[in-house]
Design a binder for these strands. Structure first.
Lengths: 121, 121
DNA sequence: CTCTATGCAAAAACTTTGCAGGGAT
DNA sequence: ATCCCTGCAAAGTTTTTGCATAGAG
């Protein structure tokens, strides 16, 4: 199974906390904050943050800071942009691939801020 | 002078704290955090945050959350993108205008994340 | 058995709020 | 004189760290 493989490749120990955490990310279409994860499973915040940090170091997860002072994490898949709504604070992945270039800079992520479809009605 | 005019237009009182704060923003090429402002003038954090919030309500300032958990503020000028470096946490304004559109969404700001020119060497 | 991971509690970092006194109009 | 603004202190939020115990390999 992919979780076992992923953990083994990175020389980490597969604990039940890590399995549950990765399961959640594998099944989520959106980036998730600690609060989001916590609403799905009981996990100590220290365990959450230590694990997502480790997973980021290992390039399993990526993250960004939203408008609401929370950090959102997601699996490192294809590069794509994110949309953060300033009304509802919702976070969405934008499928369309981005291609923006700036001499001398490495662009790894794009965060678009504004008003989402829902709140725009 | 423009500061007096701006404050009067918005029906606010012109205090010395507000004058100093706006002077700093008028003379800065980059968005600034409380820490940045604090290194230039002595101002209580409550005063800083209450003022920048008020200025944001009045559309005098705009802001965004960076990678370092700090909020950066700047004068509301022409829409432009920002670059946040994940190595040095530096924030820069990107002059080139952006044009990105997504059906149903209102895009007001774009934050590019990655590695800046300096750190890329 | 050894070494890393977990959970709890306390601390850290940034921002917000309450309150009494001060200043702008 | 009135009403808004300021500074200090305390509280609120999210994330990090210390430490003893538990669990994976």
């Amino acid at each position: 199974m992919k979780i076992e493989k992923l953990i083994e490749e990175k020389n980490l120990k597969l604990t039940s906390a890590r399995r549950e955490l990765l399961e959640i990310f594998f099944h989520s279409a959106k980036p998730l904050s600690f609060e989001d994860v916590r609403s799905r499973i009981k996990m100590d915040k220290a365990t959450f943050y230590r694990n997502v940090s480790k997973f980021e170091e290992q390039a399993i997860l990526g993250s960004f800071e939203s408008n609401d002072k929370k950090r959102y994490y997601e699996l490192n898949t294809l590069p794509h942009a994110h949309f953060v709504c300033k009304i509802c604070n919702g976070v969405e992945c934008i499928k369309e691939p981005f291609s923006m270039s700036l001499d001398g800079y490495v662009i790894e992520d794009i965060i678009l801020k504004g008003v989402c479809k829902q709140c725009n009605k």
